[in-house]
Design a protein around this nucleic acid. Structure first.
Lengths: 164, 164
DNA sequence: CATTTATTTTGAGGAAGTCACAATAAGGGG
DNA sequence: CCCCTTATTGTGACTTCCTCAAAATAAATG
């Protein structure tokens, strides 16, 4: 079928290809499709990534997505985080120490810069002798849209947890 | 059967009983056994809690543990957190805004007071309009024991992820 | 002690992810 | 350009962690 969903992979493909090679990985359509999907829709689950990547590579399988996501995450090309009561989400924004804010009503995820501008959360007061490598910070709250809906329940039933 | 494993439940039972009643819950042996297990071993998984609670209540079922843990967590009597690549862990220390440090080698979990002593992580720089309710902070690192073992690999095989 | 109904148990089932092995295709040499 | 090696993907079964509905049990109350 024709590509009616905007720009297919290929826009950032050269960048991903060289990055993969630099990590000693072969450049496969599966990896490119996954990387492209994650880049176009950050904070996506493996399931959502599969669906998006299949727009360009219909024969892609769930298992391959899991394998690719795991490998690229270990490589540092992707970042994974696991919100409570949700499957793992992935994003291409790596290297900086940014955090995430999740709306407990609709499940929407936003990036959040580190609080005091320079990784204060990486310096806990007492580490019990542990050498801290990373600080995973997740804010949970209610986004403005959902807050408005909560106060004026017009038609839809009140949701309690994210579904997608 | 006699109680040979030290102090059974009953030490803090009166406290838990009144707390349960204050929340409009009936005082059952299952709930007391779960609460006692979590109090004795903080940062335990549902599975571990089941095993511990069964020392005093052998007929306790996994499903009951899940139900009780979920309900008590919603009530605020327990706190749940979900480390990456691990089932949910529970603790009785609630109300304060403390965080957790996890050893990525052995899976050990330690409590960590909030970084700058007064919930700095609750104040992200940019919230995209979200009203932040809670900040979940998880530090991942290597504890001193595992760091020592890493440098001197004497006999045991090198572990990579927590198992219990 | 009897009654009410919250709680637990029983049993099935689902979501998310893993593992082993066969099939495929990317990259390098000729 | 074709072949070969082996990384990668696909296939299929399986595990873990957890949830749901309905029947059985046991707190709390009078």
């Amino acid at each position: 079928m024709e590509r009616t969903h905007g720009n297919g992979p290929g826009a950032s493909a050269p960048v991903w290809s060289s990055a993969l090679r630099e990590h000693g990985r072969r450049v496969t359509r599966q990896r490119l499709a996954v990387l492209d999907a994650v880049e176009r829709h950050p904070h996506s689950s493996a399931d959502a990534i599969l669906a998006m990547a299949r727009e360009d590579l219909p024969e892609l399988t769930p298992q391959s997505v899991y394998v690719v996501l795991g490998d690229l995450t270990d490589l540092g090309m992707l970042r994974r985080f696991e919100p409570p009561h949700s499957p793992a989400l992935y994003e291409t924004r790596v290297g900086d120490n940014h955090h995430h804010a999740i709306c407990s009503v609709c499940g929407r995820v936003e990036d959040v810069e580190c609080a005091v501008g320079h990784a204060p959360c990486l310096t806990p007061s007492e580490t019990h002798g542990m050498t801290i490598m990373i600080a995973d910070v997740t804010y949970v709250g209610v986004c403005s849209d959902c807050a408005a809906k909560q106060h004026t329940p017009p038609s839809g039933p009140p949701q309690t947890l994210p579904s997608t």
